[in-house]
Amino acid sequence: MSHTCTKVTLRQRAISKGRISLYLDYYPAVRHPETMQMSRREYLGIYIYANPKNEMERAFNGEMLAKAEAIRCIRVQALINEDFGFLDRNKMREDFLAYFLKKCRKKEQKWRIVYMHFSNYVQGRCTFGDLTVDLYQGFAEYLLKAKKLRREGRISHNSAAAYFSTVRAVLKLAYRDKWLKENINNFLDKIEAKQVKKEYLTLDEVKQLAQTPCEHEVLRRASLFSCLTGLRISDILNLKWEDFELAPDYGYCIRIKTQKTSTEATLPISYEAYELCGEPSTGKVFKELRRSMVNYPLKKWIQEAGIKKHITFHCFRHSYAVIQISLGTDIYTVSKMLTHKNVATTQIYADLVSAKKRETAEKISLK
């Protein structure tokens, strides 16, 4: 079966006011890959004088005809490469904010926060055609000075870095979905995160916390569960009884797909961690747990335990990693339990374990 090559011809059509409209004629017609409609003509929006009166008008006609011919050559090359993006002339006018919001629905809460900041920056209107390097670099500068959405103060430098990384991820998706003809990310500089101290609890402090009553018992159980498993708050909130299973060694495991990185993993947990989940049932494990509890209620409980450190719920994940490494668990295993994609990410916790550093320092002796 022979393949008929589409011929692209530059044609002219007389219109009003002594002008001629230039258009491309495709034969045979080409089919739009999304609408499946056949397309024969493409008007270029280029006009020339029907009867040029002077040298300037003749020169203008020559320049416009040259530009139209250049477009014709590009279209021929696109057809050979089976790149039909030029058929959709409305994409650049589509609402990028609507696309961004749609992507947020399957992502973690941070995506919605970034969406709200970006919407504020563009004053509620942004098409795909508006997306430029300058727009994004301006948004980076906006983030470095922006105020928090619901609380007092400005967002931290590292939060700005994370937010900018998220909005770049949306760009990557838009390019993958063929809404953009080029990946703008290739021309953007990221906001470099600053090294900050990761706060964590020692094993003795975790035990101290476990012995301190909490106003919200579900918060106490979920917090200690995080200390024993390293799970994030987002994954604990989504944890269901259906995610538990018995391993061949009759120990308990949980099958999760992390909300932050969409990583699927089967993680063994201790019986002590399993007991913190309460009576086996159906649906969510920590049913009464609310995100609002990890703010003031958590802070109050930490203070009542006599712990002076600034501890957030995410610090329980840090605590799990540091305690495991300090007790001799190898960094590769800890990395797998934390569902890190790169061991280098876990290496940060090894640097926090001063006890292991001291042990290393004492290993070499000349006495």
Rank of each mutant, 00 (worst) to 15 (best):
E242A: 15
N81V: 07
A98L: 06
I71D: 09
T166K: 06
E199P: 00
M116G: 04
V218I: 08
R105G: 02
I48R: 03
D243R: 06
I71C: 11
T346Y: 08
I236M: 08
Y274G: 11
L231G: 04
T127C: 01
Q77S: 09
K287E: 14
Y250D: 14
K190V: 14
T9H: 10
M38V: 03
K197C: 11
A210F: 02
F187A: 15
Y142C: 00
E275P: 00
A50M: 11
G283T: 12
Y136R: 03
A66N: 14
L144G: 00
A273G: 10
K53E: 15
I46H: 06
K367G: 13
Q324Y: 01
T312W: 03
R154I: 13
D330K: 08
S262T: 10
V8K: 10
N186R: 15
A350R: 03
A59Y: 04
L246I: 04
E279P: 09
T360N: 13
C315I: 08
R72V: 05
G18H: 11
K145S: 13
A247G: 12
E34V: 09
L22K: 00
G85P: 03
P280R: 09
Q123Y: 00
L22A: 08
T266E: 13
L246E: 10
T333G: 14
R19S: 01
I20K: 02
S292C: 02
N81R: 14
T9F: 13
L143H: 02
L203H: 06
R89P: 05
K299D: 11
N54P: 07
D330P: 07
C277L: 08
V218E: 10
G45T: 02
P280M: 13
G45S: 05
F313L: 05
K147W: 00
V343K: 00
K53T: 14
A210I: 09
Y274Q: 09
M293S: 08
T212D: 09
R125Q: 10
R232I: 04
E34L: 12
S39L: 15
S319V: 02
A50R: 14
W111M: 01
K197M: 12
L87Y: 11
D88R: 01
S262W: 00
S270N: 07
D134C: 06
K367V: 03
Q123W: 03
P280H: 12
A169P: 00
S223G: 15
A14Y: 07
Q37M: 13
Y26T: 07
A193E: 15
E141K: 05
A174W: 06
P33A: 12
F118E: 00
Y49M: 12
F244L: 10
P248F: 10
L352F: 00
D243T: 03
N61C: 09
P268G: 10
F244Y: 13
F313R: 06
L44M: 06
V343R: 02
L131G: 04
L44A: 08
E94I: 04
R19A: 04
Y136P: 05
L289M: 08
M92D: 13
E215C: 06
T312D: 10
F86P: 00
R93A: 13
K67R: 15
K336D: 02
